[in-house]
Amino acid sequence: MKNVLIINGHEYYKKSKGELNQTIFNEMQHLLTGQFDIKTTVVDKGYEVDEEIEKWLWADVVIMQTPIYWFSIPGKFKQYIDRVYMDNIFFKG
């Protein structure tokens, strides 16, 4: 295990700016740097689907840091998962 992808799935809201999630995300990155090769994604800052697919294929481990809203993940993170988990790449149907 060498390659780690860390994803911050927080979605900004006026009442929930994501400071705790960003702090945890930053701390994970800090603690793992030097021991592992790290790539990151902050969903709320945007992403390219093809680049994200490559990151997932590259990663040995994926860490998803996200808040839980009403027993689910934020909408933008759900959309990220729907767009990145492509048929015939991660699933054989």
Rank of each mutant, 00 (worst) to 15 (best):
N3Q: 09
N3T: 03
V4Y: 03
V4N: 03
L5N: 02
L5T: 02
I6T: 05
I7M: 04
I7V: 10
I7L: 06
N8V: 02
N8P: 04
G9W: 05
G9V: 04
H10V: 11
Y12F: 15
Y12H: 15
K14H: 12
K14I: 11
K15S: 15
K15A: 14
S16R: 15
G18M: 08
G18D: 08
L20C: 09
N21Q: 12
Q22M: 14
Q22D: 15
T23Q: 15
T23P: 05
T23V: 12
T23C: 14
I24S: 05
F25S: 08
N26F: 12
N26P: 10
N26M: 13
E27T: 15
M28G: 06
M28E: 11
Q29W: 00
Q29D: 09
Q29H: 11
H30M: 12
L31K: 15
L32K: 09
L32G: 07
T33I: 07
G34W: 06
F36I: 00
F36E: 03
F36N: 11
D37W: 00
I38L: 14
T40N: 12
T40M: 07
T40R: 10
T40F: 02
T41F: 00
T41H: 01
V42P: 03
V42F: 07
V43P: 05
V43W: 04
V43G: 07
D44G: 10
D44A: 15
K45T: 09
G46V: 09
Y47E: 00
Y47F: 13
Y47L: 02
Y47Q: 03
E48P: 00
E48G: 02
V49T: 10
V49F: 01
V49I: 12
V49W: 02
V49E: 04
E51A: 10
I53Y: 04
E54Q: 13
K55Y: 00
K55L: 01
W56A: 01
L57S: 02
W58E: 04
W58A: 05
A59S: 10
D60G: 07
D60N: 14
V61N: 08
V61G: 01
V61A: 04
V62W: 02
I63H: 11
M64P: 00
M64V: 10
M64C: 11
M64W: 06
